[in-house]
Design a protein around this nucleic acid. Structure first.
Lengths: 96, 96
DNA sequence: CCCGGAAGTATAGAGCGTCTATATATCGAC
DNA sequence: GTCGATATATAGACGCTCTATACTTCCGGG
């Protein structure tokens, strides 16, 4: 979900996605590359993102990921499920 | 965290904990016994809960769990971490 | 000129926790 | 008597994250 959300602002390479998530969460979330790269593969397999080799802003080759239309739908769905889940936890925690 | 929270209202057996979480989350959360019982063991090992065999309201033998003082501290801690985590996700999702 | 650090991708293997499936026992109702 | 709800328990599959490691490339400083 976080990866999909990050790609809303345009294509980005793995390294950039990790940095973006770290930054936008105020350093609270730190996705490791050992988690991120397998996750990107899963997302691509599901058809939610697509990749293309390109040259980064710093003149290095990098694999850029962009969200597909299917990915956008998925993001909406994931976010709804996440909100529902958080609300359920809150419901238990605030009970009585 | 959910187990600890549930035990705030007094000792309860595993079956009851599962039902309580299901109920207080409005059926949104359904902790399976294959997850719950190992979790109860872990919590007991950590010293956050303690158990005692007793007789349930329905006249069946059941293992009742109660929260320890250490468990209460842990609950506060877990809840703070959870809130922090959810806020971090929200920060990424609401960005821009 | 070379060397270190940041930018990048990638995989193997450990670790942890959930789930499904299964087994077992008891009580009350019909 | 047998069915459904109550109740505990474990094995094994599964999925995902993490740590650790490996590799390449670009740029700047000494």
């Amino acid at each position: 979900m976080l990866v999909l959300r990050t790609l809303i602002f345009g294509p980005l390479h793995g390294y950039g996605i990790a940095k973006a998530i770290r930054t936008t969460s105020n350093e609270a979330l730190d996705i490791e590359f050992g988690s991120l790269y397998p996750a990107l593969k899963r997302l691509e397999l599901k058809g939610w993102i697509a990749s293309k080799w390109d040259i980064s802003e710093l003149n290095r080759k990098a694999k850029f990921y962009r969200m597909t239309p299917l990915g956008k739908k998925q993001l909406v769905d994931e976010q709804a499920k996440w909100n529902h889940f958080v609300a359920a936890i809150a419901s238990v925690m605030e009970g009585e």
